[in-house]
């Protein structure tokens, strides 16, 4: 151990000292103190299983009841976690393609944000249209409609470009089937939820519905959310909105979601309110689980990585 931590200078000097005729040997150097060993590893010797925990974990795709090896997760789980995190990071970093709205026949709108980075850092700028978009909206959009749907990128352009058109189409048809007039289809770039207030106010819609990519979570970079508000106006808060999340292939299917959103929109117009003051009890039959207050049905996790065995 001593050799490891000191130079050979002292030994060399001792040799030189003997050569120069020094009689007594050099005093021994003070001993190097021992370096303590790391603490012993203690592994649990009993396995604990709880049927309650297992059943609870079955109701969510979150990483619950996933087990452990010693004090760490299993390798398989760590790989899944990293893969899912990468999906989420990728989704946040993706930008809506420049002419995506025109290609899909939507009225293109843009917020006051000037870059994707600024969009992520400045929610306030993503909540208001830029001047050109306000002009265009005033000139080209239908006014005084019942429902104004707005497709937007939100925090996941991947989701918007993925199931966005499908959800918008289903939602439009579901509203029209219930006798509601629907506004000009439009798509907002770099948009946050509250943008629906300004757009809905300009077009004079009774209900504004923004359908946008939701904040990616583990393994869900492609989820859409829908936020509906009655009497949209700048200054509304989240207490005025009703929302539905997890609209993607492994969650709520866009078709099913569109019907429930149309039910909500009609209820808002009937009750002339939305958000916390909207009475959901009459909608129990049509909305089902979403308003019943019961726990969700069991869900299955989708594996993103297959580990060869």
């Amino acid at each position: 151990m001593n050799e490891l931590h000191t130079s050979r200078t002292r030994e060399l000097v001792a040799v030189l000292r003997r050569e120069l005729g020094g009689a007594a040997p050099l005093p021994p150097p003070p001993p190097v103190p021992e370096i303590p060993l790391p603490p012993a590893r203690i592994w649990p010797t009993e396995s604990h299983r709880s049927s309650y925990a297992e059943r609870t974990a079955g109701h969510t795709t979150a990483l619950l009841g996933v087990g452990h090896c010693g004090t760490r997760y299993h390798t398989d789980l760590v790989l899944q976690f990293q893969a899912e995190l990468a999906v989420a990071h990728g989704a946040v970093a993706t930008e809506l393609e420049a002419d995506w709205a025109e290609k899909n026949g939507l009225l293109p709108l843009h917020t006051r944000v000037s870059s994707h980075r600024e969009f992520l850092l400045r929610p306030d700028l993503g909540r208001r249209l830029n001047d050109a978009s306000v002009e265009r909206l005033r000139a080209e959009a239908r006014k005084g409609v019942d429902v104004q749907p707005i497709l937007a990128d939100g925090l996941s352009a991947v989701a918007c470009m993925g199931a966005g058109m499908e959800l918008l189409g289903h939602f439009t048809r579901a509203c029209e089937a219930r006798g509601l007039s629907v506004g000009t289809p439009m798509c907002a770039h770099h948009a946050r939820v509250w943008l629906e207030d300004e757009i809905g106010e300009i077009v004079g819609a009774k209900v504004a519905a923004i359908l946008l990519g939701e904040r990616p979570g583990l393994g869900t970079g492609d989820g859409l959310s829908a936020y509906l508000v009655y009497h949209p106006k700048v200054g509304n808060t989240d207490g005025n909105r009703n929302m539905m999340s997890n609209i993607h292939a492994r969650g709520i299917h866009p078709n099913e979601a569109a019907n429930k959103l149309a039910v909500l929109a009609r209820a808002m117009i009937q009750q002339q309110t939305s958000g916390v003051s909207l009475d959901l009890r009459p909608l129990l039959a049509e909305l089902g689980d979403a308003v019943s207050g019961k726990p969700q049905a069991p869900q299955a996790r989708v594996r993103l990585v297959e580990v060869p065995r």
Binding site: H5, P30, V32
Partner: peptide, 11 residues
Amino acid sequence: IRCLEHDACFY
């Protein structure tokens, strides 16, 4: 401190 107490020094 280890180096000063056990290694480098003037002679």
